[in-house]
Write a protein that binds this DNA or RNA. Structure first.
Lengths: 210, 210
DNA sequence: GTCTATAACGTGATAGAC
DNA sequence: GTCTATCACGTTATAGAC
């Protein structure tokens, strides 16, 4: 969890402060809308130091982006490739871990989606997600469950999109459904806590629906 | 469907060409990353004409944004407030209409999400979504179904988030799961066509799960 | 390592000829 | 209405003193 604020000691070095500030601002505004001055101000340091420690805005951004992808995509693949857990447990794991992660860093999904749109080639060619998925334990277990008639939905992509959509979509749509009102932040948290238990039940029901 | 390319005759006036080009580029790159020169080039017109017809980049953007919201949010509220349809039919309507819309304009969701993040106050204060939803026919029907024990999930927000997530999330995650490979565009279309029929079945199963 | 001052560049917008 | 040329400004990045 490279980018997780909670799980690492606060880095008080100048370099660390810049990186933390960069993550905060990039997550909130995206690469194009972020000015290096914003990051310097957020970090409480001089603008020139940003270029001293990291060569450029683009280079700093790439570090943040790679860590965000590591947090998100790689963490997912780890769960999906666990030989020791079955499909139901995997859904529980994904729901539990990701909702906790996203309650701490709610801006990660929108950040990743936005920046990949701007640069589909750059970072995605390095992770051949399609291939990795098709060889995953998750896909194999899904295929076996279909053969055993435990699941009616034959396409594992539907399964995956449904599970991830149930987990991630509320965080993406939060500004729309919550209307930006601070008062409802707590209400949102309660909803997401409920979903940790509900999503496994829902997914199970969906995948067995006729 | 103000911004729907397919349903309107191609506007060949200079003003129309600029607006279409603006939609294309803004949808793809967002406001901050878009240069007025990009729009002019896409439209095949001179840069100065953009400022002649629309006062500024910001003003042109607002037009595109308002139309995107009209396409998306207002269309949804229309369906959800239809007195003549029940819950099941509403899910069918949303799935059918939105998947068709998004197959034509797949970039709308990411566009809206991105730009609302940058400007949560501006356009959202005008649409008090939270209030509109709580008074909607959809919410009332949901409450009635819960009272009649036809649905086990008591919170209509879960219902709404699940339905919308199942419809919209694949389009948001498309660059990730499809990896940007053109070859798989057709495969994606097939999946989405399947979902038009599957989502109503899934939602029904979910909301009755114990 | 950290600062101030400034260079180098890109972008939004306009003036003015046609 | 449409073009070319240019201005005005903000931003990234660096030079150079401390």
């Amino acid at each position: 969890m490279a980018g997780n604020k909670e799980n690492q000691k606060k880095d008080t070095t100048t370099e660390g402060k810049i990186k933390e500030a960069a993550r905060t601002v990039f997550y909130k505004k995206g690469f194009a809308a972020t000015r290096t001055r914003d990051i310097a101000e957020e970090a409480g340091i001089n603008l020139a130091l940003l270029n001293y420690y990291f060569r450029s805005k683009a280079k700093l951004f790439e570090i943040i982006m790679v860590e965000a992808l590591a947090d998100f995509v790689k963490g997912l693949l780890t769960v999906l490739n666990d030989e020791k857990t079955g499909l139901e447990k995997k859904v529980q794991e994904v729901a539990g871990r990701y909702i906790d992660l996203l309650l701490e860093e709610p801006e990660i999904p929108t950040f990743i989606v936005t920046e990949i749109r701007s640069n589909p080639e750059g970072l995605l060619k390095k992770l051949p997600i399609q291939e990795v998925l098709s060889k995953s334990v998750f896909f194999r277990q899904h295929r076996e469950a279909v053969e055993k008639r435990q699941i009616t939905q034959p396409d594992p992509l539907h399964f995956l999109m449904n599970m991830m959509g149930l987990v991630v979509f509320p965080f993406i749509a939060k500004p729309l459904i919550m209307g930006g009102r601070k008062m409802q932040a707590q209400e949102f948290n309660v909803l997401m806590q409920e979903r940790k238990a509900l999503i496994p039940v829902w997914v199970k029901a969906m995948m067995k629906a006729k």
